[in-house]
């Protein structure tokens, strides 16, 4: 269980993390979602005791990271796969980390095997591809067989194979009953990986909920109805008190599901060419929720929703 209470980090005049409180439940994959620059990495560094919070605290199983005895046995983390000396071999990198927490040298070989780096264990880490570096980082995180794992943007820049591998790995870790806290700026990625979501924007908490609830809350569920003659159905739907919007030759209905609309169409003997549930895009929902808190703007956002993307007061 990771708990952040009123976590705050100020750099000069910039509030990178602003009074952030959330908790990461034990034994689940919790996604840490926010646009680039929202303060995710800073928060993770504060959880790991690397950066000192300006205010508030972050506790792991009730303890500050700095108070953990042999912390690699409790918490494993991969914040940046490039935090490796380029002239050190993968094995040497893991060897010093293992030694620092009194982990057996055999464990190094185990984790190398686990992430599939045994073949290149004695090669210098500086020559690794991003995918290999990422695997080395995960090996380092798993070294102490910790119950709590933190990953910062683990799929960033990986090829599809690498992304799939990481995703499977997260699920496997969660299936083993570990607590996984993983950040991303991609909601679609998180929807596939995480059961819980902590969403932040501009250093502030936007929501904490299960992924399902978040998606349901964030996206509007509608049904598209298309047909040559919809007048009768339309008036019938109107009587049922649902919201109807015209879109070309179709109707977009919200407030009634496909089954009920189908029944209604049969009763009014309406010919339908299409009856399909519409899920708003996750990314759109994410942008709508965090829109006010995006750090950097471009004027290239497609014309439809500029109003929601420009934060108040700018």
């Amino acid at each position: 269980m990771i708990e952040a209470v009123g976590l705050t980090k100020r750099y000069g005049n910039t509030l990178a993390v602003d009074n952030l409180s959330f908790s990461v439940p034990t034994g689940r994959v919790t996604g840490f979602l926010g646009p680039n620059g929202a303060g995710k990495s800073t928060t993770m560094r504060m959880i790991l005791g690397l950066d000192t919070p300006t205010g508030g605290s972050a506790l792991i199983d009730g303890k500050r990271y700095r108070d953990l005895h042999q912390p690699l046995r409790t918490v494993g983390a991969l914040l940046d796969a490039k935090w490796v000396h380029p002239n050190r071999s993968a094995r040497a990198h893991l060897a010093w980390m293992a030694r620092s927490n009194n982990l057996s040298a055999g464990r190094v070989d185990e984790v190398l095997d686990l992430v599939g780096l045994t073949g290149v264990a004695n090669k210098r880490a500086g020559g690794f591809s991003l995918g290999m570096s990422q695997r080395l980082g995960i090996a380092a995180a798993l070294l102490g067989d910790p119950q709590v794992l933190l990953f910062d943007e683990p799929v960033n820049g990986l090829d599809p194979e690498g992304i799939l591998w990481i995703r499977k790995f997260m699920h496997r870790l969660a299936d083993e009953g570990r607590t996984v806290f993983v950040s991303s700026h991609l909601l679609s990625e998180m929807a596939l990986t995480a059961q819980e979501l902590v969403v932040i924007g501009r250093g502030k908490l936007i929501s904490q909920s299960s992924t399902e609830d978040f998606v349901a809350m964030a996206t509007e569920n509608t049904v598209k109805v298309r047909g040559p003659q919809l007048t009768a159905l339309r008036s019938e739907l109107g009587r049922a008190g649902v919201t109807i919007r015209d879109e070309g030759d179709s109707l977009i209905v919200s407030g009634m599901d496909c089954a009920d609309i189908g029944e209604l169409a049969a009763r009014t003997q309406t010919v339908l060419h299409e009856l399909s549930p519409q899920r708003g895009s996750l990314e759109e929902a994410f942008i709508q929720l965090t829109g006010d808190s995006v750090e950097y703007h471009t004027d290239l956002v497609d014309g439809a929703t500029p109003a929601t993307l420009v934060p108040a007061g700018k």
Binding site: R45, L48, G49, L50, Y65, R66, D67, L68, P71, L72, A77, L79, D80, K82, W83, V84, H85, M97, S100, N101, A140
Partner: peptide, 11 residues
Amino acid sequence: ATIRATFQAVP
């Protein structure tokens, strides 16, 4: 940045 890995291993 291995100093971060270092301080992570031993705070």
